[in-house]
């Protein structure tokens, strides 16, 4: 299988301190492969090594050991960068330029002719939801959210095959986030691979096909999101909601069922069991106590729980 990103044994050490230099490992022997045409989520807590990885891939910093390839070329290959896009975290651009001028400047660096630059500029600034009246404003007058939109637009001016987005939703309001989610979906539909790091787990759940979770510079987990959630080792739990009966009235009867727990609810009780077959045992107990069944549902482990587990374990 050919990978669009191949990361092999990538490590990065930083030296900290002034007199007594101390080496701090920001990234530790990372191995990762990403196939094309998908939205890949890169997760991890603060200081987990997400931005360090992306900066190494962009050749902004150099790895201490290991190597990486993008689109089959080594990351040091300057020409390869004409096929990729990048929006940094909290992007900041030349504040003396207007949004239109910035797009034009970057388009020129990609060697696009003036007519195409102009066309792409208008198309992308519209697509990221930047008001036309703001196109000719200097970027120093832009809010954080507006800069984020310009950052996304500039990352797409060369129609990249893969786009790296470092915290793309940062600074955006809920409407902005929804628009950018739609844009990311559209990119995938067009065949563009999206590699995004984010703290916002709902965005990962809504967007990503596959994820990798980093913990203290190391890869903690990687795979399809559903697989990760089901393979996470957490026991399957079923939730039985009951009304018309107090939790205390059921407590004694449930003691005989292994793993069953009960909690009180305003209208009744909530029973949790770990074996599907126990449902048949619980139903007569509820009826005998004068209660009635409201619902039975499997409890799905959330990405948040998985994230907490992988980043804290």
């Amino acid at each position: 299988m050919s990978y669009i990103i191949e990361i092999e044994n990538l490590s990065k050490d930083y030296e900290v301190g002034f007199w007594k230099k101390k080496r701090v490992r920001a990234l530790d022997d990372l191995n990762l492969q990403v196939t094309g045409g998908q939205i890949f989520g890169f997760l991890g807590g603060n200081g987990a090594g997400k931005t360090t990885t992306i900066k190494i891939l962009m050749s902004l910093i150099f790895p201490t050991t290991g190597k990486a390839k993008i689109l089959g070329s080594d990351i040091s290959d300057v020409k390869m960068r004409s096929r990729i896009g990048y929006c940094p975290e909290n992007p900041y651009f030349y504040d003396y330029l207007k949004a239109r001028e910035l797009m034009n400047y970057f388009g020129e660096l990609f060697g696009l002719d003036p007519a195409l630059r102009n066309q792409k500029t208008e198309e992308l600034l519209t697509r990221v939801g930047l008001d036309e009246k703001d196109w000719n404003k200097q970027l120093r007058k832009f809010s954080k959210g507006m800069l984020q939109r310009v950052g996304l637009a500039q990352a797409l001016i060369n129609e990249p095959e893969i786009v790296f987005l470092d915290e793309p939703m940062s600074g955006l309001d809920p409407i902005g986030r929804r628009e950018i989610r739609e844009l990311i979906h559209e990119l995938r539909e067009k065949g563009t691979t999206v590699f995004m790091s984010t703290h916002i787990l709902s965005d990962i759940e809504a967007l990503c096909d596959r994820v990798a979770i980093l913990r203290k510079g190391k890869l903690a987990a990687t795979g399809n999101l559903d697989e990760l959630l089901s393979e996470s080792g957490a026991a399957q739990v079923y939730e039985v909601n009951v009304k018309g009966v107090a939790a205390a009235a059921l407590e004694n009867e449930l003691k005989g069922i292994a793993g069953a727990t009960i909690s009180a609810k305003p209208t009744g009780a909530n029973i949790q069991i770990t074996d599907e077959k126990d449902i048949d045992l619980i139903l007569p107990i509820i009826r005998n106590a004068g209660g009635s069944l409201v619902s039975v549902q499997p409890v799905k482990q959330s990405l948040e729980e998985l994230f907490v587990k992988e980043t804290e374990s």
Binding site: K79, R81, P88, P91, L109, F110
Partner: peptide, 13 residues
């Protein structure tokens, strides 16, 4: 100002 990030992610030596 980190403006260099956007420059060096482009095909610029």
């Amino acid at each position: 100002r980190r403006t260099i990030y956007a420059i060096f992610s482009k095909p610029i030596g």
